[in-house]
């Protein structure tokens, strides 16, 4: 498991029903591309997060397949519909099998 992985997500606390909101996510991760070499000239093996998903009450918002060309500390910004109060679930899948997730509640009001 990569060290110091910390997901950060920005979701408004409340929204009107049926409203669209902007979500920003960032996760600290080195995203080693597999192209770099260490001091002795040996290639550093690839170690990235290869998939990110966002769901609201089990319904998909966005599902991103990521390749090595995504920058260090992958950042995503997108818009979601909020039909009712509930919970956003954000999940990141690492090359090494680790899964990082976080949730955010949103209320109608």
């Amino acid at each position: 498991m990569a060290k110091g992985v910390k997901p950060r997500v920005k979701v408004p606390k409340t929204a009107a029903a049926g409203d669209s909101i902007t979500i920003k996510t960032l996760i600290s991760h080195k995203m080693e591309s597999g192209q770099r070499k260490d001091g002795d000239g040996n290639p550093i093996p690839r170690s990235i997060i290869n998939r990110f998903t966002c769901e609201f009450n089990g319904e998909s918002v966005v599902d991103v397949a990521m390749e090595a060309a995504i920058s260090t500390n992958p950042y995503f910004e997108f818009e979601a519909l909020v039909p009712e109060a509930g919970e956003f679930k954000f999940t990141w899948y690492d090359d090494d099998g680790s899964v990082y997730d976080t949730t955010k509640k949103i209320a109608i009001g």
Binding site: F56, V61, V64, A65, Y75, A80
Partner: peptide, 17 residues
């Protein structure tokens, strides 16, 4: 990257680095 937009995507847009 490949973005797949689900039912609850308010707009078919995304930004990243």
């Amino acid at each position: 990257a490949t973005f797949k937009f689900g039912k609850l995507a308010a707009s078919r847009s995304a930004s990243t680095r």
